[in-house]
């Protein structure tokens, strides 16, 4: 068992062996979640607070379910509706919550680095549920678990990540994770949605979708946020769909057994054709949701073990 971190702030600090540890444990939780009685007590007696400074239904539900299945007391706080509106700073909010002695803090924030900042000010374990355009580590881990279970391995695969790379924390965490596990990662999308000098991250960049999908094992689609249209990143939804939307013809350039992934929520007819998303032979989108709960159970379990092992100082670290 290898996992030496107090927080899960990103994929970047993780060693490949630690990633394997999380995925192996998550595999066990997948089995548990498929039983009639889905309960364990790894987090019994611990308090988990979900702080979402940005709207989320799926990720928050997944974390909530993960905590409850492991016996934690879970509290959800919709932060955009509360103290932030009253002018309280992020750090004050963190200190206030910290004084309530939570054990696990799950945080999503619209600004890159905000979760790191918060983690410096509390003495519980912090899980990053997405910060700005920076990282979304549990999404990358659940994608990795999905790939590993579908492909039987998580190395030497050709994986194409397609769409709005520039604004995507999911893409960044996946690029880092898949690179660490020694896969070949391609990025496919219009140059306006590609971050600068992204080629230096050890990936291949394609502007043509058909070329980018040629012979890949995994096609990972990203959500196109509608507000990108106003920003002038792409001319129209229909042109985007024509050039970068995943349909049967474009998918035919990938390997015959290539799987199709999407972090959700999907825009059918914008980045993905509905029939592909629903094709049970190709699409693993529902599995991704299932793996999400298991991966989050594993991550929180491991952090709670380290929490118990560490000599935790009482009170607030300011």
């Amino acid at each position: 068992m290898t996992f030496h971190h107090r927080h899960l702030l990103g994929i970047e600090p993780l060693h490949p062996e630690e990633i394997r540890t999380i995925l192996d444990l998550a595999d066990q939780y997948v089995d548990l979640n498929r039983r009639a009685v889905k309960h364990a007590d790894a987090l019994a007696g611990l308090t988990q607070i979900n702080m979402f400074f940005e709207n989320s239904t799926r990720t928050q539900a997944s974390f909530e379910l993960a905590g409850k299945r492991l016996g934690a007391d879970v509290m959800n706080m919709a932060m955009q509706a509360s103290s932030i509106k009253k002018g309280e700073t992020l750090i004050d909010t963190a200190l206030t919550l910290n004084a309530m002695h939570p054990d696990l803090l799950v945080v999503r924030h619209p600004h890159s680095g905000a979760v790191d900042l918060l983690a410096q000010k509390v003495n519980c374990a912090v899980l990053n549920a997405g910060d700005g355009r920076h990282e979304h580590p549990t999404q990358a881990l659940l994608d990795a678990l999905t790939i590993r279970r579908a492909k039987g391995r998580l190395h030497r695969l050709n994986i194409a990540i397609c769409g709005d790379i520039a604004h995507s924390r999911v893409a960044r965490s996946n690029i880092i994770l898949l690179g660490k596990m020694e896969n070949r990662v391609r990025l496919v999308g219009p140059p306006t949605l590609m971050p600068s000098q992204v080629g230096e991250l050890g990936v291949e960049v394609y502007e043509d979708m058909r070329e980018g999908l040629k012979d890949v094992d995994v096609v990972m689609m990203l959500r196109l946020q509608r507000e990108r249209m106003d920003g002038g990143f792409i001319p129209s939804e229909r042109e985007y769909y024509h050039r970068y939307g995943l349909d049967a013809e474009k998918l035919s350039h990938a390997r015959e057994d290539a799987i199709v992934m999407h972090p959700g929520p999907m825009n059918r007819g914008v980045e993905i054709d509905g029939t592909i998303a629903d094709d049970i032979n190709r699409s693993v989108i529902q599995e991704q949701v299932e793996m999400g709960v298991a991966v989050r159970m594993a991550a929180m379990d491991l952090l709670a073990r380290n929490l118990r092992a560490a000599d935790r100082p009482a009170g607030v670290m300011a």
Partner: peptide
């Protein structure tokens, strides 16, 4: 400033 560092950190950048 735009570049590899900005991309990794997910920060809004300028050329």
């Amino acid at each position: 400033t735009s570049g590899k560092f900005a991309t990794l950190k997910g920060l809004p950048a300028v050329s």
